[in-house]
Amino acid sequence: MRILRNISFGQYIPRDSLIHNLDPRIKILSCLAIIVNLFLITKFSGYLILGSFVLISIIISKVHPKFVFRGLRPLLFIIIFTLIIHLFMTEGEVIYQLGFLKITREGLVKGLLISFRLFILILTTSLLTLATSPISLTDGIERLLSVFKFIGIPAHEIAMMMTIALRFIPTLLEETEKIMKAQISRGADFESGNIFNRAKNLIPILIPLFVNAFRRADELAIAMEAKCYRGGEGRTHYRELKIKKTDILTFILTIVITITVSVMF
């Protein structure tokens, strides 16, 4: 039960660094550029250059690498799994044979390439969330999406939903823990039984949680209305986003690197 308390959402690590101070839009766009690039290139040297670019950014961000690599852990299984699948399942020149299992040169190359791709992808996105506060991330997403307003993308509404979700995650976690404990005190059992029974045992947690969430939503809506909320129309922003010189330079650097890499490799 205590686990719930220890989950940290929006794993932002506050530091004063060049990366932290970049405009969130620049960070999001740069990440996108790198990710798109990862899927375009096909040579190791390309991954090497992109990988070192991301690694250097991690060093500049002053976020301890252990936090960045922590994000890898849950996905390590997937990386290894894809590597193994490619190692053994690709037809080609056999370089090692163990019984009926054959490792081919093509398989090794393909497997490693895809592993690198996933690896760098995760590092890039971890760095983005580690070095950008949830607030500026939502701000950035809102401003970027508002470009597409003319095709009917509700940029402000999406951002508001993200903000409220972020705000209420800790509250709801706390509440879940409390309801769980209360039902255990009444004799509920969440630890034994088969999967079907366990799922059924969740009802005493889920129903109160939903009922309370609906009541919260209702009260929150009234509070928002009382504070003159009427959607995104005519709204100003407390957090101004300004493109600085460093932002432009960073963006140019990223674009130059990604284009060069994708053209050359």
């Binding site: 509440e175 409390k178 309801i179 209360a182 039902q183 009444r186 509920a188 109160p208 009922v211």
Partner: peptide, 28 residues
């Protein structure tokens, strides 16, 4: 040892009051 949490009305979930009060004894 019966423990009644703060705002215990937030833990109600059954369809009827009978079922709600019967939850504990049933689990026994």
């Amino acid at each position: 040892i019966g423990l009644v949490f703060q705002y215990p009305e937030n833990q109600l979930f059954e369809e009827t009051i009978y079922q709600e009060v019967a939850f504990g004894p049933r689990k026994l």
